[in-house]
Computed example of a mutant assay.
Amino acid sequence: MPMIELRRLRYLVTVADEGHVTRAAERLGIAQPPLTRQIRLLEAELGVTLFERLPRGVRPTEAGRVVVEAARDVVARAERIKEIATRAARGEQGRLAIGYTSSAAFHPFVTQQIRAFRKARPGVLLELAEDGTPELVKALKDERLDAAFIRSTSTDVAGLAIEPLLEEKMVVALPAGHRLARESKLTLAELAEETFVFYRRPTGPGLYDAIMAACLAAGFSPAVGQEAPRLSSTLSLVASGLGVTLTPASMQRMNVEDVQFVRLKGAKGLVAPLLLATRRRDRSTLVEAFRREAKAAALKTNVAA
């Protein structure tokens, strides 16, 4: 049996609701003869009589009542599909996969943007993933992620659009009880004799290289005693007394016990950038909306600062 036209099912439901072909035609905005013809074609297609002709209208037959209810459900489903498509085109429905580095996860800007996007678009399914910059970049290229908050562009970002959002100050993290922990500010030169805890360069090459360069500019090459797989893990090593580290200021939000944070002075240019990465091609309406709103929020934040 050929597929039944959705248009005829709409006609069927309207005639049943009105109980009169002429009124149904007026409601549908078509002439009465074509509507009658379409109902007859539908009856022929189904092989059943759908309406009893009355002196002043029509009413569904027993078979017609069953078909009308089934048609009503099909029409309602079709309307929902249309609504879903419209909402998706407006960026109000669909799926958006967002990634972020472990350090970006503690930046209030990132959580605020995700929260605001979810609140404005409750019909959008947000999938979140935390990983290192190289892994996030690969996931973007493999189309497993749609956008990612990253800290550097030192990895291969071909095919991606990298847009700067904010720059964050760095602070010194020391074990509680360290001789420098009570200072209000520290210079990099005052850390020259310290053992450093770094996170592995492949995980965050941008910040790693920036810290190394800043230390060299301050007149020393940092002695790296331990390396951690994630920036957040370095604070656990610091808490254990294995060394000191430099970390984005937002990492203080971790509230790691036995770690003291001290502001850094005189290290001009040593900042932790927050960047938004997306694919240059195949951007969906949702990705464009997230990108646009993140950039607008960052601009307001920078102006306020």
Rank of each mutant, 00 (worst) to 15 (best):
D156K: 11
R90D: 10
H107G: 01
G29N: 02
L165Y: 08
E257C: 05
M254T: 05
A148F: 09
A129R: 15
E18H: 14
A16R: 01
L274A: 02
R118A: 13
E288R: 15
S154R: 15
Y100T: 01
D17H: 06
G99V: 13
T101R: 08
P60Q: 06
F109L: 03
G19S: 15
L41M: 05
A16K: 03
P122E: 06
L191V: 01
G29M: 10
T245R: 12
R151K: 01
V67F: 14
F51I: 00
R283Y: 04
G241M: 04
R7D: 12
T86N: 02
E79T: 10
I81H: 14
A189T: 07
R56T: 07
E227Q: 13
P33V: 10
R80N: 00
E143A: 08
I84V: 12
R27A: 07
E257M: 04
A147G: 06
E83C: 02
Q32T: 15
M251R: 06
D146F: 12
L41D: 13
T247C: 11
L125P: 04
R144M: 08
E79A: 04
K265A: 09
V15H: 11
Y199K: 00
G94A: 02
G57P: 01
L128Y: 06
V256P: 09
A214N: 01
A289P: 00
F198H: 06
D156W: 13
V13H: 07
L174P: 01
D146R: 13
L235G: 00
I39V: 01
N302V: 14
R7W: 12
Q226T: 05
V172Q: 05
E127K: 15
R291L: 12
M170F: 05
A148Q: 07
M251V: 07
A120G: 13
E18N: 11
R283N: 10
L264A: 12
E135H: 05
I4R: 14
E288D: 14
A189D: 06
K141A: 10
E167R: 06
Q32I: 02
P34K: 11
G204T: 00
R95S: 11
L270R: 03
L46S: 06
E293N: 07
I39A: 10
T278F: 09
L145A: 00
T187V: 05
E168C: 05
L28P: 07
D282Q: 13
G99I: 09
A210E: 04
R179F: 12
